[in-house]
Amino acid sequence: MRGMRARGGARDFAAAAADTASVGLSLFPLGISFGVLVVHAGLTWWWATVFTAVIYAGSLEFLLLGLVASVTPLGQIAVTALLVNLRHVFYALSFPLSRVRPLGRVYATFALTDEAYAMTAGEHARSWSGARILWMQALCQGYWVGGATLGALAGSLIPITLHGLDFALTALFVVLTIDAWRTQRDLPAPLLAAASFALAALLTPGQVLPAAMALFTVSLLIRYALRHRAGSPAPDEHRHPVPAVPAVPAVAAAGGEG
């Protein structure tokens, strides 16, 4: 029994290692560039490890580096963290937390990054076990913390500047957009997203990310309401089974939530 469980665990780990190979190859170099920037900001190298291991929210960490360098008041840092990471609120809609055993949910929610959400959002992830999801998240954080630590150490030893490394984050989100598009080929949604972003950039230049996300959500809700008022069910409503929402009863998921 124990041997079987151990083999199952090894299988989950091996599967998660394969799942995260591509994400890791973008997280790792991005982590290196973050580590280099930590040293450039005048902090000791191990702060790169602390930032990435304790906060574990990439875009906020990059932003925070500039804020702490100018000793920004903590209240303002809290508001910034809230606005930049507000999008994570929506990830609870479809992340399969109910498959993770209760104790593991502490880490599963802590490590629920954009990448972790994107990896579990697709059709292929519906068969993933809780252990495989946790290993996936732990490996993603490992690549990120490892890259940042290595970058900070290298940055403090060798005084070189590598320009343009931060494009890895852009490339990663471009790739994730294309992958998400392949799961759900519906043109109005990305068009609404682009329009929301443009509007947010014009109206609220200081808080583009949360404003764009809020506008996008509202525009989707309006679109949903218009479709249902017209009386015709959405054309894609029944054709695709809902890949993102697990089939387990909601009660089972609610049980372990503190």
Binding site: T170, L176, Q184, A189, S196, F197, L209
Partner: peptide
């Protein structure tokens, strides 16, 4: 409906944001 429609748009917004 939101859970199905959001991923592409959210990833696109994040890409634009970077």
């Amino acid at each position: 409906y939101l859970a199905r429609q959001m991923p592409t748009g959210i990833m696109l917004i994040l890409a634009l944001y970077t």
